[in-house]
Simulated assay, not measured.
Amino acid sequence: MSQAQHLRADWLNSPATQAACAMLTGAGHAAWLVGGCVRDALLHLPVADLDITTDAAPETILALAKAAGLRALPTGIAHGTVTVIIDGTAFEITTLRRDIATDGRHATVAFTTDIAQDAARRDFTINALYADATGRVRDPLGGGLADLEARRVRFIGDPARRIAEDDLRILRFFRFHAHYADPAGGIDAQGLAACAAGLDGLAGLSRERVGAEVRKLLSAPDPAPATAAMAQAGVLAAILPGADPLALAPLIHLESQPPTTGIPPHWLRRLAVLGGADPGAALRLSRAELRDLSALRDAIARPDPPAALGYRLGAGLATDATLARAALMGMPPAPGWQSEIAHGAQAQFPVRAADLMPNLQGPALGAELTRLQDRWIASGFRLTRAELLA
């Protein structure tokens, strides 16, 4: 990674990014791209969020943006953050900070001009990397670039102290391990021990924050090693009681084998396979997610063939259910399962409620429609309307 200490990326050289930095540097202030955008660019990964840190105070950032004719929003001004929008791109610009008090969820900060103090309050070494508008990378604490090259996730300084500052960092540790660590290198032992020792702090986290981390973790290319480490530390049982970490590896293996390699990973499919007493409630899922998770869990437990799943669930959920069930059974789906799902998803039940009225009404009408639909599905969608009604 030493040869990558000069960052090269299209987003860095874009007029919008250069304008955001020039707004600050032109007034004599520092401007550093920081965190995920630097980390991911050095790994040649897509970059989503563009964060800038500066020694300028929040009020100064607002004034500079106004003078430059740029739209600026005081989105987190109490914590030093102003969002500046340039050509449709949002830049979160935050004054360099240091923590003066933390309670496991929130931090009281003071502004600083010392980039090392700002770096020291961050969570992992690979997130404490900075780059100026020319792409020159700084690693104020040392070790961040080396850890990134080794694909190693480590807390900055004392892991227990970092976790005490924000209990969510326990889940972030495993999520970052899933996305960025080299599986062959194992997981940082000190970090793992600190997560195990800090389990009680998880109870104070909102289910929304926990759910957001689990979504991101399960969306990683291969979250199985990180999930197994979570189980080892007791974290998995704390947030998803009854979940089985061993169930995930067969699904990941199946997803990586032809002909399923073109099917994108789906965190909800993986959550369904993990199981647990009530993951929907534990993670505060949306109504649509709860509905899909319930349908997946029901489909996994039933012997419906792929075509029937395609009709009942639609192609996407049917694919998830088929892969999940196959992984739990320890065998790949039967040949042709994808075309069967597509066939079922396109099928149209030929009988309508009006065909059975007025002879049937209410619950009797619903029961007969269900019976006819089951017959039609069992026939491979071949029975016609006339045959069903005969």
Rank of each mutant, 00 (worst) to 15 (best):
E59S: 10
T60N: 09
T60C: 12
I61M: 12
L62D: 07
A65T: 04
A65P: 01
K66P: 01
G69R: 04
L70V: 12
L70C: 06
A72R: 00
A72C: 11
L73G: 01
P74N: 14
P74F: 09
I77K: 13
I77N: 03
A78F: 07
A78G: 15
H79E: 13
G80C: 07
G80T: 00
T81Q: 11
T81F: 01
V82K: 06
T83E: 13
V84M: 12
V84N: 02
V84T: 10
V84E: 03
I85Y: 02
I85E: 12
I85P: 00
I85R: 10
I86F: 02
G88H: 11
A90R: 10
F91T: 00
E92S: 11
I93R: 02
I93Y: 02
T94A: 11
R97L: 06
R97H: 05
R97Q: 14
R98F: 09
D99Y: 04
D99T: 11
I100T: 15
T102K: 11
D103T: 00
D103G: 08
G104H: 10
R105H: 14
H106F: 15
A107N: 10
A110Q: 14
F111G: 05
I115D: 05
I115C: 00
I115N: 03
A116P: 09
Q117S: 10
Q117P: 09
A120G: 06
A120L: 04
A120D: 12
R121L: 13
R122Y: 03
D123W: 03
T125D: 08
T125P: 06
N127K: 09
A128F: 05
A128R: 02
L129W: 02
A131N: 04
A131E: 03
D132F: 04
R138M: 12
D139Q: 12
P140Q: 02
G142R: 02
G144K: 03
L145P: 02
L145N: 03
D147E: 10
D147C: 08
L148F: 07
A150M: 10
R151G: 04
R152W: 01
R152C: 06
R152D: 03
V153E: 00
R154W: 08
F155P: 05
F155V: 00
F155R: 00
G157D: 10
G157R: 15
G157C: 09
G157Q: 13
D158V: 01
D158I: 02
R161S: 14
R161F: 14
R162E: 08
I163A: 05
I163C: 00
I163E: 01
A164H: 08
E165D: 15
E165H: 11
E165I: 03
E165G: 14
D167Q: 01
L168K: 01
R169V: 03
I170K: 08
I170C: 08
R172K: 12
F173R: 04
F174H: 06
F176M: 11
H177D: 15
H177A: 15
A178I: 10
H179N: 13
H179R: 15
H179P: 07
H179L: 12
H179A: 04
Y180H: 10
Y180D: 04
D182C: 15
D182A: 15
